[in-house]
Design a protein around this nucleic acid. Structure first.
Length: 326
DNA sequence: AACTCAGGCAACCGCGGGTAT
DNA sequence: GATACCCGCGGTTGCCTGAGT
């Protein structure tokens, strides 16, 4: 049974031969692929358009990077997956030359197992209950011993979420170079479901404030919300370091109003995560949990782009190298 | 050398969203 | 608005290969 789109035609399935690859490659490089459904016919292939597209995207495309994933790539995958979940195509966008299929396979065959071995739930990136951990082999203890690439797999409770975009739309030298966001703030919807009882609650984040000059961000009710115990756990990375939940390590240089302008509205799908930054007299940023992760898509991606965890220390900021395509 | 098994990878399948008619 | 078609995505399957016995 072939694809629905080509069930009427006699199509070949299975592995591609070098000849087929050559035909497809030659055709696409010469004519492009305006319509995949016509490609096989035009290229003289007994394949369906879908199959051709897949082969091109995952194998023939010239800018694909082959070979094993680097530690840095691995780190990016883990970090972005923590935010996006199984949105492989989105994750792959942060890894030039890698395909969604490649990332997915790497995740399933390698990263997932490492996370499990460290006692982390690969879906939520949270520590699994001891019983569950032991089910997976009881290797949670290994999580404390890593001094190699396994360090990538840190519990989100100890690694504040940070984003860095050194080359997009903002000159780091001008300021606005420090900002840390806890994983709870950036948690994807699916994670919210999973973490409902243990992580950020929207209400707790509804009063995020940024003050001018030496900007502070605060979460109302931070200390009273059990959910924010999770965030306070991140205080070792100087994200939140007092009982009121103030993040005094979050410094925005408000003289760079250009970027506050840019930040003025972050529309995140229809669930707007209002990120309202007012004028320089009284900056105010509102946010709540439950980010619609469409924000990770190109233009809608945090337009400011440049979040940097200056206080992460000790590898806490595992997203330093993440480049947002915005 | 032969066999088994697990891991990695490529490809397929089905679904959802977008667009044209 | 309804329908058909196409594309892109994520989940899954199955093949290939290498390590272990």
């Amino acid at each position: 049974m072939g694809h629905h789109c080509c069930s009427k035609h006699k199509v070949k399935r299975g592995l591609w031969s070098p000849e087929e690859d050559e035909k497809l490659f030659n055709y696409i490089t010469a004519h492009g692929h305006a319509c995949w459904s016509t490609v096989p016919k035009e290229a003289g292939l007994q394949r369906c358009g879908k199959s051709c597209r897949l082969r091109w995207m995952n194998y023939l495309k010239p800018d694909l990077k082959r070979g094993s994933f680097s530690v840095e790539e691995e780190r990016i995958i883990v970090d972005v997956h923590r935010i996006l979940g199984n949105r492989w195509a989105q994750i792959a966008k942060h890894l030039p030359g890698r395909t969604d299929n490649e990332v997915k396979n790497f995740w399933n065959s390698c990263i997932k197992k490492k996370l499990i071995a460290q006692g982390l739930d690969p879906k939520t990136h949270n520590l699994m209950p001891a019983s569950k951990t032991s089910t997976y082999g009881g290797a949670a203890a290994a999580a404390t011993t890593g001094n190699n690439s396994d360090e990538i797999f840190q519990s989100p409770t100890t690694a504040p979420f940070t984003i860095s975009s050194p080359n997009k739309g903002f000159d780091r030298a001008k300021g606005f170079d420090k900002m840390a966001i806890p994983p709870t703030l950036m948690a994807p919807p699916q994670s919210n479901v999973a973490l409902h009882d243990q992580t950020a609650v929207p209400a707790a984040l509804s009063d995020l404030q940024c003050r001018d000059s030496h900007v502070l961000m605060s979460f109302a009710n931070a200390s009273s919300s059990p959910s924010l115990g999770h965030m306070n756990a991140a205080s070792s990375s100087s994200f939140i370091n007092d009982q009121n939940g103030f993040m005094d390590d979050c410094v925005w240089d408000s003289t760079d109003m250009e970027h506050f302008e840019a930040l003025n509205q972050i529309e995140v799908g229809d669930k707007v995560q209002t990120c309202t930054l007012g004028n320089e007299k009284g900056l105010m940023m509102e946010a709540y949990c439950g980010f619609d992760l469409e924000m990770m898509d190109d233009s809608s991606l945090l337009p400011c782009g440049d979040f940097y965890n200056g206080g992460g220390g000790g590898g806490g900021g595992s997203m330093e190298q993440l480049q947002w395509h915005c």
